[in-house]
């Protein structure tokens, strides 16, 4: 897949999401199901890489781009992550406080709620690939609980999960 098409597909995902991993369902739909240039395992690894690195969580699309097309793909992913940010300038210039209107806020809130449902839908096939026994299941549940109820950085969860996987292999 060429970098321009990859950029446009990733931009479609980032430009229709409103935080973190909400672009994931569109990424999976296009790159895993439609074009078959990415596997569920790679998408899962991209999420882990994006969450391990410091900085914005949405940068997992850089890893997705790298998996699909190497360094040019990573650049396409990086550009796709950055491009929607500039929409705020249009909003500041022409909308200002009108964007706070109840109906507009309600529409955006509903899109975020729908995105939660879509993230669940996209997680199911990834879970089928990654949860292959009791230990991965325990790691997934422990990661959820640890991040939900403590303030430790994600990188510690990733390191702990890697160590647990390694220990289980001995």
């Amino acid at each position: 897949m060429n970098a321009l098409l990859l950029y446009l597909l990733l931009l479609k995902a980032t430009g229709t999401s409103f935080s973190g991993l909400t672009s994931l369902p569109v990424v999976r739909h296009d790159l895993v199901e439609r074009y078959h240039v990415l596997t569920d395992r790679q998408l899962n690894a991209a999420v882990a890489a994006g969450r391990t690195a410091p900085g914005p969580n949405g940068l997992y699309v850089v890893s997705v781009g790298y998996f699909v097309a190497g360094v040019p793909g990573a650049c396409a992913g990086c550009l796709a992550a950055m491009t929607p940010a500039f929409i705020i300038i249009v909003l500041l210039r022409y909308l200002g406080r009108r964007a706070e209107r109840p109906r507009v806020k309600s529409a955006i809130q509903s899109v975020t709620l729908a995105a939660a449902g879509l993230v669940i839908s996209a997680t199911i096939p990834l879970a089928r690939d990654a949860i292959t026994g009791p230990l991965p299941m325990a790691i997934a549940i422990a990661s959820f609980l640890f991040l939900a109820f403590t303030r430790y950085a994600t990188v510690w969860v990733i390191l702990g999960a890697a160590l647990a996987g390694l220990a289980a292999s001995y």
Binding site: L21, A116, A127, D129, A130, A142, A161, A162
Partner: peptide, 29 residues
């Protein structure tokens, strides 16, 4: 093989993170 075992652990953790992402979107509502 050892690295793959460690990676399998991180992939399982990523599933937990995605479930958490969905919950964090829902929780304020």
């Amino acid at each position: 093989a050892k690295a793959l075992a460690a990676i399998a652990g991180t992939l399982a953790a990523a599933v937990g993170m995605m479930a958490l992402s969905a919950w964090q979107l829902l929780r304020p509502h």
